[in-house]
Amino acid sequence: MLLIQCPYCGERPEVEFVYGGQAHIARPQQSAELSDQQWTDFLYRRDNARGPHAERWRHTHGCGRFFNALRDTTTDHFLTTYKQGETPPRPPAESAT
C-alpha cells in the first residue's frame, strides 16, 4: 500500500484516497466550436505516461480535498504532491528513482 503525502493532512495510507486520473486537463471553454477529434481527445486521450505522471488524488476519507501529485509510474514513487491550482513542478531529469 502506498503512503501518500496529502498537502493538507500529511502522510496517510493509500486507502484513504481516491485516484482522480491525469491532472491539468481543462474542460474546453467553447466546446461547441471544437472538432470531433478535439472533443474526443478531451474526453478519452490520456498521456498514459511511463515515468513522471501528473495526476489528481482526493483525500476522500480525510480532509476531502482534491490535490495533485507527480508520481513515477515505473516505480510508483511519489516525487511530490501539490495543491490544486499550483503550477506543476518540473519532473527531475533522469533522477526519477
Binding site: M1, V15, V18, Y19, N48, E55, T73, T74, T75
Partner: peptide, 13 residues
C-alpha cells in the same frame, strides 16, 4: 489497482 502504473505489482490490500 486504482492508479495507472507500469510496475507489474500492486497493493497488498
Amino acid at each position: 489497482d486504482a492508479y495507472t502504473s507500469y510496475t507489474q505489482r500492486g497493493g497488498l490490500h
